[in-house]
Design a protein around this nucleic acid. Structure first.
Lengths: 335, 335
DNA sequence: CTGAAAGCGCTTACAG
DNA sequence: CTGAAAGCGCTTACAG
């Protein structure tokens, strides 16, 4: 393309000072006379000089990138978390590099981790939302600061962690449904990284607290069509009057399956989603859902990482609350 | 954290060879005897050595990162495009670093561009979906390979470009609606980077080809609630019998506004979305929509970028086709 | 095929 | 406050 980018030596030459002097005005640590400082600044302007991050990282160990390791980057919760990380990182002067870990298989995990490690990042945030994410977590060496962003508390790993209080959210939503007079609440879970996701645990806890034996929960994939098939079996069962879905898409699938089966929502059955995606208020009926602030999860994760990078250990775990948003898909049990 | 990462010098020492020899087995360009190669490989294994990408980039100019500049990373089309880019980049051995350009204001744009430039990336892909993206495009210097991923053809900028054939998709969808007997088609557009987005242009062209004067189109924001407000005004107008929405979320808003107004879909009004997000088949009625393959757009963009990086200029523009998916939200005009 | 030397663009002690 | 020197971890000619 065009000529090579200007270097610090070019700036020094134009400004008529030494290379270290330019470096000093750049880093700002060591004092430089006002006169030379101005000369240097002018030269930088004139040449459109940009410091070379690679050289800088090489010599000073100053890292200006953080990596995020995730199994996916486009699904709502994942994308929003990445967005929050990027926002906080950018505000702090870091760039974010993303690497997806497609599966939990050793090869995929190793390749991803090796890539990240070779790029001398300041730290890495792992989206421990699923098996691949969790596998990546365990494959990371101690040599780099790591924080985990999780969709649930749990896991014994000793690492700073930000998590969504989805267990509590599920408990509250379930209790709310029970309070509406439903005799039990059915649950369709999403695949998760734990033996049992936080939402499923919260749902189960709420039922048990009410003295109700949790019905067997169903587990679906990330493909809403699979959720739809599962939902049809629920729709065929007249004892099902309240459903807690793993996320809003699953909830939409339930809405549709119920409607097709001639069961009205919320007249015959109440449905609660998870996430509060933008579409949640637009489906018919508008979805009651447990709002999760993924962007905040991302921001908090970065804050934790920044602390770790700076050697401040401080608070190890931060929880991001959920909020039950009641709309039109839930109502009292009809006798 | 732990001790410093092993360097090429450590590997050389353990293997009992010189540093350049290690480098040679690493890069693979220059032949090395089988014996030493094996010694080196064993040492690499033993030490868990990872080449330092910064040092490598510094000396050889070998870049292993590509940047994506975008106004947003979490909305469906944006996130899917990034996903496609990441997938293709990873397969080719590149990492992707993302930077969001929040607004088209000079400050935001400059900061983002400077960040990217200082990180010696091999190239950059700009998501020219909106004003900030477009501003970033014009702020990028000639010194780095750039390709544009766009939601529409257009723009005179002389750069390799992959674009979604959304103009054609909108034209087909509009013609389909007209073929159903609707006298005209109304349109709610999303904000776009052009004076007039591809979808709007395609819609307008189809109407004109049929000798129909396009009604004034409405423009909404990315917030589905705004689309919902707009949709209410359309719902109140009995002459509206067919609506082409800017994307599936807008279409969901239209569905809801119509239903609330007592106008049935598709009995009274037909609605077509754009994107075919997973939720499209789950809303009620299932949405007829123009499917757009954003992931493919991302992959194609990367392929173009890779060519540019390797100095092969070849084909400058690639178009990713859309596909009209007919479901239940559209039907013949009822008299 | 292999090693000693030079150098990528920067920052950090070291002497003034 | 400032410049000459050394060195970060690598790769690329240069000589063998």
């Amino acid at each position: 393309m065009a000529g090579r980018a200007p270097t610090i030596a070019d700036v020094a030459r134009v400004a008529g000072v030494s290379v270290p002097t330019v470096s000093r005005v750049l880093t700002g640590a060591i004092p430089v006379s006002a006169k030379r400082r101005e000369l240097v600044e002018r030269a930088i302007q004139e040449l459109g000089y940009q410091p070379n991050a690679a050289a800088r990282a090489l010599v000073s160990g100053t890292r200006s990138m953080v990596a995020v390791l995730a199994a996916n980057t486009s699904r709502y919760g994942y994308a929003k978390t990445v967005e929050g990380i990027e926002e906080a990182a950018r505000a702090a002067g870091y760039m974010v590099v993303i690497t997806v870990v497609e599966t939990a298989e050793q090869d995929a995990v190793r390749t991803a981790v090796a890539m990240v490690l070779s790029h001398s990042v300041a730290g890495v945030i792992v989206l421990d939302f699923d098996e691949p994410g969790h596998a990546a977590l365990t494959a990371l060496p101690q040599s780099v600061p790591v924080v985990v962003a999780a969709a649930a508390q749990s896991r014994a790993i000793k690492l700073p962690r930000a998590f969504l209080a989805d267990q509590r959210g599920a408990r509250e939503a379930t209790a709310y449904l029970l309070g509406l007079g439903h005799e039990t609440v059915h649950h369709i879970a999403l695949p998760s990284s734990g033996r049992r996701g936080g939402r499923t645990a919260g749902w189960s806890a709420a039922l048990q607290a009410a003295g109700i034996r949790p019905p067997k929960h169903l587990t679906t994939t990330w493909n809403p069509l699979d959720a739809y098939e599962l939902a049809k079996s629920l729709a065929a069962d007249p004892s099902v009057t309240a459903v807690l879905a793993g996320n809003d898409e699953v909830a939409a699938a339930v809405l549709r399956a119920m409607t097709e089966q001639g069961r009205s929502v919320p007249g015959d059955v109440s449905v609660v989603g998870f996430d509060d995606q933008p579409i949640a208020s637009l489906v018919t009926p508008a979805l009651t859902t447990v709002a999760q602030d993924f962007a905040e999860l991302g921001r908090q994760s970065f804050t934790l990482l920044e602390r770790s990078i700076n050697g401040q250990e401080s608070q190890q775990t931060v929880s991001v609350p959920t909020q039950l948003i009641i709309r039109a898909s839930t109502g009292p049990r009809r006798d």
